[in-house]
């Protein structure tokens, strides 16, 4: 049991660190690599949790995570990136130092929110802090980088954070729901990829700051 907890905690840490690292990278390939590592860590954590608690569902979900998030989705994004192939770097609207400070600030904010929500309960706020921070960092990244592919990646990072939350906080959601969420992510990324193609075709760019014909 101790070992299981250790593995899950370590994987959580890896996920948090890779979430932080994405803030520093500008090249899509590096961000994609971060996502792959994160998904792998998630699959390992889920598998270990399933093994140790004797919960067969979790093991199944770990295999599905491995297939969908570490293999299918990254290859689809590679495909999209190759096809649009105009730019391989996300434009930063603010400096790296500002990113780092903001990420740290978001971590602090998550800690405050988590401790307040769990005040007086027999539960330590670390796991909740980690999840909230990952979600906020993903959101922050989506707001500051306007490239369509980075926004897609941001959604994937947020979704990974939520899967981690489901594992660490809720000890795994029912199988139907976990698989449903994974199916949604897969369909969503396919749909977004198709839209990115079309946007590239019509606008000759995938910079969403240029998508500004509609207003009011």
């Amino acid at each position: 049991m101790q070992c299981y907890n250790n593995v899950v905690t370590w994987m959580g840490t890896i996920i948090l660190i890779s979430g932080f690292l994405t803030v520093l990278f500008r090249r899509f390939w590096n961000i994609l690599a971060c996502y792959r590592i994160q998904s792998l860590a998630l699959a390992i954590a889920t598998w270990t949790a399933g093994r140790m608690t004797g919960n067969g569902h979790l093991e199944m979900i770990a295999y599905a995570t491995l297939l969908v998030k570490a293999i299918l989705i990254p290859s689809w994004i590679r495909h999209v990136l190759k096809r649009i192939s105009t730019r391989t770097e996300a434009r930063l609207t603010v400096g790296v130092a500002f990113y780092l400070f903001s990420a740290a600030g978001l971590l602090l904010l998550s800690h405050v929110v988590a401790s307040r929500a769990l005040y007086g309960l027999r539960a330590s706020p670390e796991a909740l802090t980690e999840v909230l921070a990952l979600v906020l960092i993903g959101l922050f990244q989506m707001m500051t980088r306007r490239e369509a592919v980075t926004q897609m990646m941001g959604i994937l990072f947020i979704e990974n954070a939520l899967t981690l939350a489901a594992l660490q906080l809720a000890k795994g959601l029912p199988m139907v729901i976990e698989l449903g969420i994974m199916l949604d992510v897969l369909i969503g990324i396919l749909a977004m990829g198709i839209l990115v193609y079309r946007i590239q075709e019509q606008f000759d760019t995938t910079d969403t700051a240029r998508l500004s014909t509609l207003h009011g």
Partner: peptide, 18 residues
């Protein structure tokens, strides 16, 4: 596949998913 429609679709899928 018109420009405005694509822009609307992108905004929609990103904001609602988040």
């Amino acid at each position: 596949h018109q420009r405005a429609a694509l822009e609307a679709a992108w905004k929609y899928i990103i904001l609602c998913t988040v």
